[in-house]
Amino acid sequence: MAGREARSATLHTVIALVEDRPGVLNRVASLFRRRGFNIESLAVGHSETPGISRLTLVVDGANTVVEQVEKQLFKLIDVVKVADITHLPIVARELALVKVACTIANRADVIQIAQVFRADVVDVADMSVTIQVAGDEDKNDAFIELMEPYGIKELARTGRVALTRGIAEPTKVEEDEPEEVREFHAQAGRRPKKALPFVSD
């Protein structure tokens, strides 16, 4: 545990708002690979702004220069905004699904531990239960550690997602696309309703 605490002290949470276009994840991934940036986790999904996806990155400042990550990311044309929110008050969560081996005899023990962690049992089978636990990485780590003696059959974890607390919105797109640009893209079928044909990524 001591090692983990020391490590989490150097972890940075970086948010990137990116154009929701084909290939954008490829661009980000290619940049990290090329520059040798180590990424602890990456989570992507839609943001509050249509056409903009939100990337949440966790970067270890001990082996990667976080300032370079921010600056190089921002050089990508499809990246609209980058912010290191580590030192702001934030809410950060990750989700884990843990399939734990158990018998009728010890199933109750497993479920009891899950309850202590406010985790949900989402599936029960003959020889296993699947538990959904959400929280910061440390909490999820601790839960997974407690499940290990029973036998973890499968484990799926998302990357960290984070928002700043309160009214501060350092990760909001300030400048909306001008009306005529949006109109143009829509007319040109550049942002069609249905999925684009297969493209490079």
């Binding site: 084909p22 290939g23 490829n26 990508l76 044309i77 079928g189 550049r190 493209v199 490079s200 990524d201």
Partner: peptide, 16 residues
């Protein structure tokens, strides 16, 4: 476009 990702400032595949 995949090949030139790291060697261009930006690239496009134009579908229309």
């Amino acid at each position: 476009t995949g090949i030139t990702l790291p060697i261009t400032k930006h690239n496009y595949l134009v579908m229309h």
